[in-house]
Design a protein around this nucleic acid. Structure first.
Lengths: 354, 354
DNA sequence: CTGAAAGCGCTAACAG
DNA sequence: CTGTTAGCGCTTTCAG
């Protein structure tokens, strides 16, 4: 039963041909007679011949494999991005090897080595949040293996075979605030996480700049540094509602969706109407944004697009002739206006709704 | 810059040793002097030597890689299971190669071949929902590569190197219904998807048997065949609430969480109190179950456990000496009682709450 | 159109 | 303790 897998040599013997001819026939090389190809293909079929990728890769010096290293493989964001990567890689004929760092630099380092050992032709990576030292990536760069960072990138880590793909968080936040102003909101609160994380810093800056651009004041009391989860959002909202009557917010822009849901729950429990009394917008377009009542407006992070873009960029780095445009790519986010922030049935500028 | 990667031969030349000694030193073989090991290790470090996994695997005839094939890599369930697989595989020193079939038999077949070509030592697979013909798995089995099906399994596809891991959906449903009865519910409705899918069939059967076991009648009008999404759940709930006053349900057990949320939304819109007027329980323990108000009770599918178990089973198939127990494993689900079905502050039998 | 020969980088007998 | 030899399965010159 457990037959040794048929090899090219086996086929060669059986057909009284040389291994080279078999190899050529199987790869549909031009200088093999059609007749021979037929015979080879048929026997290969019968014996369930499966080429040994390992041997081919070793010989060719090309593994046909890309490596992916993400903080985790669960949740909403990364699986979507990895999906984009897988789709695009597969289209280009690459296999994909995936590892997760579990947000731990040590594992990141170890997995990076595993990927190198596996002779991957390029690596797509999103940094663990504890990563401060980038020596392990230097090694990769030094070996000439192209590297594309996505979402969580190393600032100032550059090279001819290094690229980055990120979302324009600043732009996303800016759009959100502009939209809220357009909806007639004048006291827009902001929930943010720690500003040493670039996602929060950029969203925060977009918030500030959008207010300023629209001639609106920035009020520190409307900016809440909170844990970006349900509980944190609830707490932040409760604090805001303790402000004197005229100073309470009529809108909340949360740097993520979970805290936005917290805000919504508190608003509802206080009998505030959403969006009429308080409009609410989150960030990330999580699955549950369509399950809240009202449905939560959010900013889509173009996860799949990010994955695909990262692979395309990597292909550009692998074959410089293909490289179009910059090695630093910033994706435009998409504001999805749902019920939680739409006061008028038809907004001034019609926007996409999902 | 892009130096050719250092090889064992390079180290050998540099140190005036043979390749075999280098190889042995690097793998910390006992018959190499400690002094030599030191020298080798140091030079390897300096030259950033990385073993070529491809060559080693080819030579050894062992790739140290497991293959995973799932319908998709996104959503909640599969990433969690894959995570379990990755963790357990990594613990056992295996790398993991992941493919998705996108619910398409053709891709499933193609990816299965890719995994075989990559010389994976075992394959973990969850079937595409269109898969009816299993010839492509026969090929795998024929080559002696162990196969573990998880969640979506082939019934009646067996062999010495084939195993399965599934969740006991029947048991989960049975627990839910028992719990609802315990909470004083007497008219328990059931939302189900098409019964040709084993998950729904088994949950449905669990529902029926639990009612019978508690001496309660089965009422067809309380069983709703609906689309298992938000909209389907809403529609089903609306229909149920159109029943004459005495015949309306005082509980809903939905075969998934999404439809359960639909039911909850309709209940709330009709000013019914959850859980007092209608208790609601879903299935799958999706992330959003903790975001509804009240929080939705559900059945946890032990995703990570499933992944880990699948790998352990695979290890058993790889090394029969390690095989403990059956090749057909059924995991016990865990009922998570949250607010949506908990009428009394403390239930008769205390249960876990998350 | 086909074959012979060499070798990718590593490991594992076997011999000293 | 170390070296020699051979070969995993495949591809790719180079010859015919």
């Amino acid at each position: 039963m457990a037959n040794r897998r048929a090899s090219i040599t086996d086929l060669a013997k059986a057909l009284n041909l040389s291994a080279s001819t078999i190899s050529r026939a199987l790869s549909d090389h031009a200088d093999v007679s059609e007749a021979t190809k037929q015979r080879v293909r048929q026997l290969a079929e019968e014996l369930h011949y499966q080429p040994n990728q390992l041997a081919a890769a070793l010989r060719r010096g090309r593994s046909n494999t890309l490596g992916v290293l993400v903080p985790h493989i669960t949740g909403h964001f990364f699986p979507e991005v990895v999906n984009g990567i897988a789709v695009e890689a597969s289209k280009a004929g690459y296999n994909v090897m995936i590892f997760q760092s579990n947000e731990d630099v040590q594992q990141e380092k170890k997995n990076l080595e595993l990927l190198m050992n596996a002779q991957v032709e390029g690596i797509l990576v999103s940094l663990a949040n504890t990563t401060q030292d980038f020596a392990h990536f230097d090694a990769v760069r030094g070996q000439g293996v192209p590297l594309v960072f996505f979402d969580r990138v190393v600032e100032g880590f550059d090279g001819p075979n290094v690229g980055t793909v990120v979302l324009d968080d600043y732009q996303g936040a800016y759009q959100v605030v502009s939209h809220l102003i357009e909806q007639g909101c004048s006291r827009i609160a902001h929930f943010t996480g720690p500003l040493h994380l670039n996602i929060h810093r950029n969203r925060h800056q977009g918030y500030l700049d959008a207010l300023t651009a629209h001639g609106m004041p920035i009020e520190q009391e409307l900016i809440a540094f909170c844990e970006m989860n349900l509980k944190g959002g609830k707490q932040a909202m409760r604090s805001l509602l303790k402000l004197p009557a005229g100073q309470r917010p009529d809108a909340v822009f949360s740097s993520n969706d979970l805290a936005a849901v917290g805000a919504m729950q508190v608003a509802k429990e206080r009998r505030l109407r959403v969006p009429d009394d308080v409009a609410i917008v989150g960030f990330s377009n999580e699955v549950f944004t369509s399950l809240t009542e009202p449905m939560l407006s959010s900013v889509d992070q173009r996860c799949e697009r990010m994955g695909k873009t990262a692979v395309q960029l990597l292909q550009g780095l692998l074959d410089t002739r293909k490289l179009r445009g910059s090695r630093q790519i910033m994706l435009k986010p998409e504001l999805l206006v749902r019920e939680s922030s739409l006061r008028r049935p038809e907004p001034t500028k019609p926007r996409k709704k999902r």
